[in-house]
Write a protein that binds this DNA or RNA. Structure first.
Lengths: 213, 213
DNA sequence: CCAAAAGTGTTCCGTCTACACCCATGG
DNA sequence: CCATGGGTGTAGACGGAACACTTTTGG
């Protein structure tokens, strides 16, 4: 019984996935998701959290179960049933030393190599789930820093949905949500003029229930 | 490792769930979902199909994974990780002798008793899944006979979504789908005037991809 | 001074919603 | 003949999509 983690990040305007070279037989050296076995004294989600902490150093992160995978021959060695979890993290929070230590790296989704066993299918499923949910749940903020510009936010949606969005329409919709708050801060890194930084207010969202892209 | 089945049916204008008295310890006698253990020589979905065939006698049915449940103490005895599957069946196909044999019965969702362990949560999750998907996938037909009236179809949507739908608007939308075909047959059981029977054309649907309520 | 990204409203069109009456028939 | 469920069209409201120019400033 194991867990496998589909870790999504967002960087350079693209959706990225964390994959590594498999460190054990069978399949040693193949590209694969990061995973681990479930201990007797922990639940499934707990195991996924522990595994992800091992990998990223982060304690809390957005995590969602993608599903269980249990084909008889999915692992050529012994029978392993695995539960896939999808995590969304902010790439900047990631300790880059850990990348080498764990032999993992970020790849763009459109450059993803074939993965070990059924891992590619897990990624497909996770991406489908993400695409479905992004329109009705405030997931995008997990992929961004606490403070972000509207352009960054829009790029996240575009990367996940795979289509371009009209800037004015997008901003109009965002302004309608009071839980996305404009701050006084200005980001001058990406543009000469400077862009207002926004923040997602979790508490304000809790009260409010409706959300639609 | 086990599978548990959330079996939905539709009868008397209501969404029904198949539950039974648990036949083994711990929890013997409590209301629970029907489940079974996963054998070494079968995949997860295969196990769910086998379990459901045992229960209903049906070989093929709509089946969808709801998720894995693996809290440490979810089973008071030994540790059991289970994968929940949601099945949609036509109540009329069900052999009612099997009801007694397996000690199961249909209950309306609004009269559902508290179920064993985390089974109530599984039902909640399955219902959520169903509500989300019913709008974009042609699931409702699995709950009806091959031939059905538009009123029946509408009742299925109303039962699942929990809200009333305007008859004229509903029928307008249905007519826009060419994979829902009107037949020459008339159902005279439920009304004096008689209602046209319709059929879901799976092949016509395959070609067509879009579906929106 | 110019390149590069930020910011801002209006119009149009299609879609969803609300709504009420006649039809056919079995009992 | 009447009670019961089947079947039909339109108008008005609303929301989503298309669309272009001005602003700021670093280099």
């Amino acid at each position: 019984m194991s867990v496998d983690c589909i870790v999504f990040g967002f960087d350079e305007g693209k959706l990225k996935l964390l994959i590594g070279r498999r460190q054990m037989d069978p399949g040693r050296g193949e590209w694969s998701l990061y995973g681990g076995f479930v201990r007797d004294d922990e639940g499934l989600e707990e195991a996924a959290h522990r595994t992800l902490q091992e990998l990223t150093g982060l304690k809390k992160m957005y995590l969602k179960q993608v599903g269980a995978f249990g084909a008889i021959d999915r692992d050529p060695g012994e029978r392993v049933i695995t539960v896939a979890y999808c995590a969304l993290i902010n790439v900047k929070d990631y300790d880059s030393r850990l990348l080498e230590e764990h032999q993992v790296k970020w790849v763009s989704l459109d450059e993803m190599p074939t993965l070990y066993s059924d891992h590619s299918e897990m990624v497909r499923k996770a991406l489908n789930l993400l695409r479905r949910r992004i329109a009705t749940e405030p997931l995008s903020f997990n992929l961004l820093p606490d403070l972000f510009t509207l352009t960054q936010l829009q790029k996240v949606y575009e990367a996940i949905l795979g289509s371009e969005i009209d800037k004015r329409n997008f901003r109009k919709r965002i302004k309608a949500f009071d839980f996305i708050e404009k701050t006084e801060l200005i980001d001058k890194l990406t543009s000469k003029r400077g862009a207002a930084l926004y923040r997602f207010n979790k508490k304000a969202y809790g009260a409010d229930t409706t959300f639609k892209l």
